[in-house]
Nucleic acid binder design. Structure first.
Lengths: 329, 329
DNA sequence: ATGATGTTTGTAATCGATTTCATGAAATCG
DNA sequence: CGATTTCATGAAATCGATTACAAACATCAT
């Protein structure tokens, strides 16, 4: 491989001048500039990124932590991040945490060892105290996540409002007995519960503890949970799910059991994934602009790197969610 | 940031010895080894990846070219790649080509500038002559793609067999007039057509040119194409689609038009994405083990890097597809 | 005691760029 | 025209690691 030294000696110039040409710096005469360009082409020279990174103390790489690549909502966020990254000449490193605390911390190593310039979390597994020390090594942005004590920029969707809207909608449809499915016990999940109960209490309704279900993520979880609901003596008439996959699976299971949706059971999704408008009846759901928060998070990241913004002080950007009324409620 | 030199002077040892400890090399006395470990902890030292990459001429990074992150089949491949990458201490850089030739070539720059050790294509836009020169800079693997003149390892699914199976199934169900939807004019696409026509000719059937549709990728394409099919005077009774999204959209559009699926129109998907078993009626489709080929491709990539395998000689690994019979045919 | 062998450690070169500083030439100014 | 500024270029230090080679020392067999 040709190096900058080869180009220098080939042209009879110094490495400094060649470097100036490569980086399009001023103060290089036109003829030398052309000379260098020709030599680079002739020798098949390409600047070595590792060498540049070392010298520049920059990699133009961001690590994006994501629970699962196969979750469409997260790839939507990823897509939003990628768009802005590309505009800024940044590349993305994918870090699938598989919701493991250990893996999450391992990926933070990339930051310590300066393999990346920063990290964007699209979900967070560890407590903030575990993460906090890493902020010393570069910008960390929370995207679609929130921690009260986190001292970093956060971009999130207003989950309280989203679940409030959805729940209120169910109540307005006349439902009195609501089942509630949640995922983990994360900040995001807490917010949703908050919005849910806010609407419930406003309406003066009661939610029995056996109508609340934990750890519902996948389609299988949806099927299982739905059957649990069916077997209840005092059965809810509407279900608030934590995601469209779960909701879709429930709709399907309902039909398999000969139940009319929404007549005998109303089902509310979350996310507005493509599947929501493909199934029959189409899902009423909460639209989450995943690409939007992804893009915002990446913009903020760039601002941090450019020094336009402090990356170790808390800031929260909150985007609204909206209800998409279709046929399942 | 502490450097290896800091650790060296802190311990009174040389950088060489510290380096030996970092890399777990032999010939370092036990007490010095511990001394170094303590010093590293004390100083908060972490080896700088750019410096190591420069010296080792390795980045432990692969670029994965993918048309769209939001396509579930490709994220499945990505997932397979990631699994094997992780086992080998490799990180993935995502490169969304958005099916653009220009972008594809831009990403190959990462290879020339040694930002990555190699590239995995999950789809290919340019002609092979355009790509070929880049093979000089590191391993290039074709995953889910095939080019006759490519002189690199390829892992692919037997598309001929897959579409043959699907088409034969439609014919066995008694269909005589088959519509065929294809995507681009890639190698993959050609193979599918081959399998399709093989089954068609075996059965002595004829396929009118107006039953063949190009550039059908998305759900919207599915809706449009379906309506074109409906408006034909001599209307096909079965549709071979290029993907589950298209098929799902068609099923929906059929129902909207009051057509019975599969009674009045049979629809065959491709991929077996989650959506295939969520819609009503469930899609008969061709299962493609995306994670499997992803993993295989990454394994081959590792073999190339380790020198166990030549990366500039053609080799083809072909995995079988299977027909999943459900309710849409 | 002699030489062979193996362990432990250090010196200095190297990977391939960027950048500071210095120097001479050219352009500009009063 | 002399002083000052700007332009063009190069020498050499630097970024932070790894590694070839050499040296000092210990161990062991003969």
């Amino acid at each position: 491989m040709a190096t900058i030294a080869d180009v220098a000696s080939y042209t009879g110039l110094s490495r400094a001048t060649v470097s100036r040409v490569i980086n399009d710096y001023p103060h290089v005469s036109k003829d030398k500039r052309e000379l260098v360009h020709e030599a680079m082409k002739e020798l098949g020279y390409f600047p070595n990124t590792s060498a540049r990174n070392l010298r520049n103390r920059r990699t133009n790489l961001v690590a994006v932590l994501i629970p699962r690549l196969t979750n469409p909502f997260f790839t939507l966020i990823l897509d939003g991040i990628e768009k802005v990254a590309e505009e800024n000449g940044f590349q993305l490193i994918i870090c699938q945490t598989k919701s493991s605390k250990k893996k999450e911390l391992e990926f933070l190593n990339l930051l310590q060892t300066k393999q990346v310039d920063g990290v964007i979390f699209t979900s967070i597994e560890n407590n903030w105290e575990e993460i906090q020390p890493y902020t010393a090594h570069g910008p960390i942005i929370l995207c679609n996540e929130y921690h009260h004590d986190a001292t970093v920029p956060m971009v999130r969707l207003n989950q309280v409002q989203g679940s409030y809207l959805g729940t209120k909608h169910l109540i307005e449809r006349g439902h009195q007995r609501l089942a509630y499915c949640m995922g983990s016990t994360s900040g995001l999940s807490n917010d949703r519960r908050k919005g849910f109960f806010q609407a419930v209490h406003e309406a003066g309704l009661e939610v029995k503890s056996e109508w609340i279900f934990h750890d519902t993520y996948t389609m299988e979880d949806g099927v299982k949970t739905f059957n649990k609901i069916l077997s209840l003596t005092e059965r809810p008439t509407a279900i608030f799910t934590g995601g469209d996959e779960v909701a879709a699976a429930m709709v399907k299971e309902a039909k398999r059991n000969g139940l009319d949706v929404p007549g005998e059971m109303a089902i509310l999704g979350f996310d507005d994934q493509p599947i929501a408008s493909m199934i029959e009846p189409e899902l009423t759901t909460i639209y989450q602009p995943g690409d939007e928060i992804g893009g915002r998070a990446m913009s903020i990241f760039m601002d941090c790197l450019k020094g336009k913004r402090d990356h170790v002080s808390k800031s929260v950007m909150e985007l609204p969610l909206s209800l998409v009324i279709r046929k399942s409620t």
